[in-house]
Nucleic acid binder design. Structure first.
Length: 854
RNA sequence: GCGGGUGUGGCGGAAUUGGUAGACGCGCCAGACUCAAAAUCUGGUUCCCGUAAGGGAGUGGGGGUUCGAUUCCCUCCACCCGCACCA
């Protein structure tokens, strides 16, 4: 009687053995090729969710596979542990953020260990630990020394209820995500990382990231947003001042009919100071929501300042100067010239304020006299008209001509403009890395001396009033100036948590070093060979990390430009959604099948089945991985994660799918269990005289090894899983004819177990030992296919007549074309389909297909 | 609005990158085992006509290139994602 696989016993047993043998602990070894596999480290929110399970299963397959291939594999884990939820927990439940965070880490660490991940836990780190952030503070001061971080006044999103700055991502439809208050724009002194120093580099190097998804590269490219154009200076009438404007269309300069300032432009501020109506308009602009709809719905509005500016190429030509709500302070110079004929916004604005619309670019095939602008601006190519010395030139030629002329006159020059802005990293929060700066009335900004690091967070803080707890703390910020000894104050802001995650991959190389980075270790391990995580970090985290790596290289901390050589972005884990009659979301655990085949809720009410969506608390369609692991085991969860859906696509979590995965693992166990007593011993030599059935099973084994290996290399895990099923099916159908044949059964079973190893490591380890092997499977080299076995001697060729398949013929591999053609034409079904007509043409594709054209 | 992606049986998906469409799994159907159920095993399962042999249609719709198209081109539709007043 076949017994069953006891996953509970087995999983904890092997986890213990791997840990005791320190299988996954690594050190630098220059003699061996290294492979650094990194999974995006989790935020310790409380418990692991299915997204983590998918992410870490994918990374673990790579880590274990590369390890079996002989690489020295670094696969670490840590905690992205600073952030708002900890402060929210403190406010809502009165738990200290540190206690909440460390409790969560303890729970989640156990959960991850229960997944059987091949991780070097000795390198574990948490960004909220002073042992980590002290080095971050040291790096910050290095950045400051190298002028890669600086302080300036900046417009920020201000939540007037919570008294704090919000990141752009925390502003939803113009309102603070927590308070719901309308966000205002305020000017505050903030620390900025000089990411724009590397704009060009960051953009150009995207091309070299061949093992990144195109999608991510494209998103970063758009985000960096390089454009070529010109700075143009418009003299302001009655002032000894010039208005600087950025444009990508200097060729349309003679079509200008106005200039416009952003409401936050310094000149607008000056004007507002004297002109109450202007001030009111500016205030209105600043209140305007930043949400999508607010922007698309907002009417183009302007305020005529009454001031005139002179055209840079004609001092007799005066243009009105407006303050306009659609001009962004963040882009270019915060001021534009308007050319209504060739820009839709400018056209809308010109129509509203009855400004002239002069076409200066003539579309190909049009006559000057017959061409005019109606409701749509013309943005296409053409030749310059109404443009004096530019007339007749194509757009590109006109651009370079006008830039040359502007240069001669000192009225402008060609420039490259980026959309990317410096990274504002100050946060008015408690649970983050303190900025190691002291503000002294006498000395100004003074860095905290390195021997005074770390600047640790005070533990006795209260969250009972809005705003920054560090600022409210009675004593923490009060210090003596390190420079003059006078009374001074600490910077009470903390760093954006994206700073924490911008260098953790490098810290993992020597996680206990007393320096931020250990040069020998980073030189050995970096770059990360395979990074695995969600697409949601396509821009922010992945761009910041690329910037940090460049900055660290410049400062001599490491010598790579790109942190992540290969990037894989996994899809989301989805589940069906359920709603009760009252419209409330119901959790899958409360749903069961009714008698009539429909779904019934907890109270017996009717349940509507909704579309499958990303698992989320709000839709209540989450499945707790802990429950799955408890019921089916970690290997089942891992196996199901890898089956069916390609890893980069969203997948559906279904109960029946999990059960299917569980069934297969049990079947694999049975296949070994039922045969083990009659198998030859482990290590026995290949016998001669195998039956044809055994020979073809051997072929199947080696073909599978070759294909499976290729699939793993390409992240095609779902296909790799299917190949294991196929081989398992072949083995199940196999009947050995004699003792020799049983050698092949052993070979098939051992190969199956080895291939399954990276995916379902506990079961595979168990079976490996059941098969009589003595060492650990994780120490076993990856199987290699015998190339002489993966080529068939005969092939099945499809024969088409006029493109329709009519027959299958079996031929010797590489049979000459003439022989193949003869065999095809002799086939009964082919002849019937040809209806006695002669073949006009016969196409033979070697070892693949024959097409007869009649 | 701009950019990108996806679309194949009841479902998840496969198809050697222009060469036998539907591998593998889920589900379903039938059978075996069982007093029975579960588990397991065997067979079947794109649709239509046909008892069958066989035939026809078929990869979101329409058109094209080709001996041959899920794959390439044009066009339309649906859904998803990213960016969004970027001058």
């Amino acid at each position: 009687m076949a017994s069953r696989y006891n996953f509970k016993e087995s999983e904890s047993k092997w986890q213990t053995q791997w840990a005791e043998a320190d299988c996954f602990g690594v050190t630098e070894d220059p003699k061996r090729p290294k492979y650094y596999v990194l999974d995006m480290f989790p935020y310790p929110s409380g418990r692991i969710h299915m997204g983590h399970v998918r992410n870490y299963t994918l990374g673990d397959v790579v880590a274990r596979y590369k390890r079996a291939q002989g690489f020295n594999v670094l696969h670490p884990m840590g905690w992205d542990a600073f952030g708002l939820p900890a402060e929210n927990a403190a406010m809502e439940r009165g738990i200290h953020p540190a206690a909440w965070t460390f409790d969560n880490i303890a729970i989640m660490r156990d959960q991850l260990k229960g997944m059987g991940l091949a991780i070097d836990w000795k390198r574990e780190l948490a960004t909220c630990h002073s042992g980590y952030y002290q080095h971050q503070q040291a790096l910050f001061l290095e950045f400051l020394k190298h002028d890669l971080v600086y302080r300036r006044e900046a417009w920020v999103n201000w939540d007037p209820v919570d008294h704090t700055v919000l990141a752009n991502e925390q502003v939803i439809d113009g309102r603070g995500w927590r308070s719901g208050a309308e966000v205002e724009k305020r000017k505050l002194a903030q620390w900025f990382f000089r990411i724009t120093e590397f704009s060009d580099d960051l953009l150009k190097a995207l091309e070299s990231l061949e093992r990144w998804p195109d999608k991510v590269r494209l998103m970063q490219q758009k985000w960096i947003g390089r454009s070529e154009g010109a700075r143009v200076y418009f003299p302001v009438c009655g002032r000894d001042e010039k208005l600087e404007v950025y444009t990508t269309r200097p060729d349309t300069l003679f079509g200008a009919s106005f200039c416009a300032l952003s409401a936050n432009h310094p000149l607008a501020g000056e004007i507002g100071a004297k002109d109450p109506a202007a001030a009111a308009f500016i205030a209105e602009c600043n209140k305007l929501g930043t949400s999508e709809e607010a922007i698309t719905r907002a009417e183009k509005k302007g305020y005529d300042t009454g001031i005139k500016v002179r055209h840079p190429l004609d001092e007799t030509w005066e243009l009105p100067l407006y303050i306009a709500n659609f001009v962004l302070m963040d882009y270019g110079t915060g001021a534009i010239f308007g050319c209504p004929a060739h820009d839709q916004r400018d056209l809308d604005f010109a129509r509203k304020y009855e400004l002239p619309v002069t076409p200066v670019i003539l579309p190909p095939g049009h006559e000057v006299a017959a061409f005019s602008i109606q409701d749509e601006a013309y943005v296409g190519p053409g030749t310059a008209i109404n443009s004096r010395f530019l007339d007749g030139l194509e757009v590109d030629a006109a651009k370079s001509q006008v830039i040359a002329r502007l240069g001669d006159l000192g009225a402008g020059q060609g420039t490259v403009q980026f959309r990317l802005r410096d990274w504002g990293a100050s946060r008015q929060r408690y649970w983050g890395c303190p900025i190691p700066i002291i503000h002294c009335q006498a000395c100004g900004v003074v860095p905290v001396p390195s021997d005074s690091l770390p600047v640790t967070l005070p533990e006795d803080v209260s969250f009972d009033q809005p705003g920054n707890p560090l600022d409210h703390h009675p004593t923490w910020k009060m210090v003596d100036c390190p420079s003059c000894g006078g009374p001074a104050q600490r910077d009470t802001d903390t760093m954006d948590t994206f700073v924490d995650s911008s260098w953790y991959f490098a810290r993992f190389c020597a996680a206990r070093s007393d320096q931020p980075l250990d040069r020998a270790a980073v030189d050995y391990w970096l770059p990360v060979d395979q990074y695995v995580g969600g697409i949601e970090h396509a821009v922010l985290h992945l761009l910041y990390s690329r910037f940090f790596t460049r900055a660290l290289q410049r400062m001599g901390y490491l010598d790579v430009e790109e942190p992540f050589d290969g990037l894989f972005t996994q899809g989301m884990v989805c589940h069906e959604t359920y709603q009760g009659a009252d419209g409330r979301w119901l959790t899958p655990g409360d749903i069961h099948a009714g008698d009539d085949g429909g779904l019934v809720g907890p109270d017996g009410g009717v349940v509507t089945r909704g579309r499958s969506e990303k698992m989320s608390k709000s839709k209540k369609n989450t499945i707790d991985p802990a429950l799955i692991i408890e019921t089916y085991g970690a290997d089942t969860a891992r196996w199901f994660m890898l089956s069916d859906s390609p890893p980069d696509r969203d997948m559906d979590w279904t109960e029946s799918g999990v059960e299917g995965a569980f069934r297969f693992l049990q079947r694999l166990w049975r296949q070994v269990d039922e045969r083990i007593d009659s198998l030859p011993p482990a290590g026995a030599a290949l016998p001669s005289n195998l039956s044809t059935g055994a020979q073809s099973l051997r072929q199947a084994v080696h073909k599978t090894i070759a294909a499976f290996t290729g699939d793993l290399d390409q992240f095609r895990f779902n296909r790799a899983v299917a190949r294991v099923y196929e081989l398992s099916n072949s083995l199940a159908a196999f009947r050995p004819e004699d003792e020799n044949d049983k050698w092949v059964e052993r070979e098939a079973l051992e190969s199956l177990v080895q291939m399954a190893g990276p995916m379902v490591p506990h079961l595979a380890e168990e079976l490996w030992h059941k098969l009589g092997q003595t060492g650990l499977l994780v120490e076993q080299a990856w199987p290699v296919a015998d190339s002489s076995l993966i080529v068939d001697e005969t092939v099945m060729l499809a024969v088409q007549v006029n493109g329709k398949k009519r027959a299958l013929i079996e031929c010797a591999r590489d049979l000459p074309e003439g022989d193949v053609e003869a065999q095809a034409l002799a086939d009964q079904a082919v002849r019937r389909a040809m209806e006695g007509k002669p073949a006009r043409k016969v196409i033979v594709v070697k070892n693949r297909i024959v097409n007869v054209v009649v």
